[in-house]
Simulated assay, not measured.
Amino acid sequence: MPQQKANRFISILYRYSQRYFTQHLRRIDCPIEVGEMSCFLQACRHPGISQDGIAANLYMDKATVARTLQRLEHSGYIRREPCETDRRMNLIYATDQAEPIFRQLQELIEQYHQMLYAGMTEEEIQVAVQMLIRMKENVSRTLRCRQEEDQEER
């Protein structure tokens, strides 16, 4: 029997999570789309974070974050304020209009985690999380090394 590969199940879990949140966001009539959730949550959890900070925290492309923040700003859920120490940078803040949505999303995420971890002990959850973190770090380190090699070749 072939060995099971973790990345297959990580990918499946990602797709399932997208479906779960899409269905539940519709069910609660939430105006935030699943693709906007991460940036929205970063703005709510980290008032005054920069756009680059959001991209770094989420391991997302800066252009994708910029487009998402633009939609959230247009919808009235975030606002940008110029940074006093670096006028080229804007700081991101959630608006008052975002607060009730943020609470809904926190509750939805908690429900998702309860479902995800059903039947698991706290120790099993911690072991699984630590293994996933190590896998992420392995891939990140390899990508950084290859990027450095590519830059040296140029």
Rank of each mutant, 00 (worst) to 15 (best):
Y16W: 13
S17M: 04
Q18P: 00
R19D: 03
R19C: 03
R19T: 03
R19I: 02
T22E: 08
H24C: 05
R27K: 10
I28V: 07
D29Y: 13
C30Q: 06
E33I: 07
V34L: 05
V34H: 05
M37S: 03
M37E: 00
M37K: 07
M37N: 02
M37W: 07
S38F: 02
F40T: 04
Q42A: 15
A43E: 02
C44D: 08
C44M: 07
R45K: 08
H46Y: 04
P47D: 09
P47H: 01
G48K: 01
G48I: 01
I49T: 08
Q51G: 10
D52P: 03
D52M: 10
I54D: 05
A55T: 12
A55F: 11
A56Q: 10
N57S: 12
L58W: 10
Y59G: 00
M60F: 15
M60L: 15
M60W: 15
K62R: 13
R67Y: 11
R67I: 13
T68E: 04
L69R: 05
Q70N: 12
L72W: 06
L72G: 04
H74D: 00
G76S: 04
Y77A: 04
Y77D: 03
I78N: 03
R79A: 05
E81Y: 01
P82F: 01
P82E: 05
C83W: 13
D86G: 03
D86P: 10
R87A: 13
R88G: 09
R88C: 11
R88I: 09
N90E: 02
N90M: 02
L91T: 06
I92H: 02
T95C: 14
T95I: 06
D96E: 11
D96Y: 02
P100V: 05
P100Y: 08
Q104N: 09
L105Q: 09
L105N: 07
L108R: 11
E110S: 14
Y112P: 06
Y112K: 11
Y112T: 05
H113F: 15
M115W: 14
M115R: 15
L116Q: 10
Y117K: 04
Y117R: 06
G119E: 10
G119C: 12
M120E: 12
T121P: 11
E122R: 15
E123L: 13
I125L: 11
Q126D: 06
Q126V: 12
A128Y: 15
V129Q: 10
V129M: 07
V129A: 06
M131I: 08
L132R: 14
L132K: 09
I133E: 00
I133K: 08
I133F: 03
I133S: 03
R134N: 00
M135N: 07
K136T: 09
N138W: 06
N138F: 09
S140G: 07
R141E: 02
L143Y: 06
L143R: 01
R144P: 00
R146N: 07
E148H: 10
E149P: 01
Q151T: 01
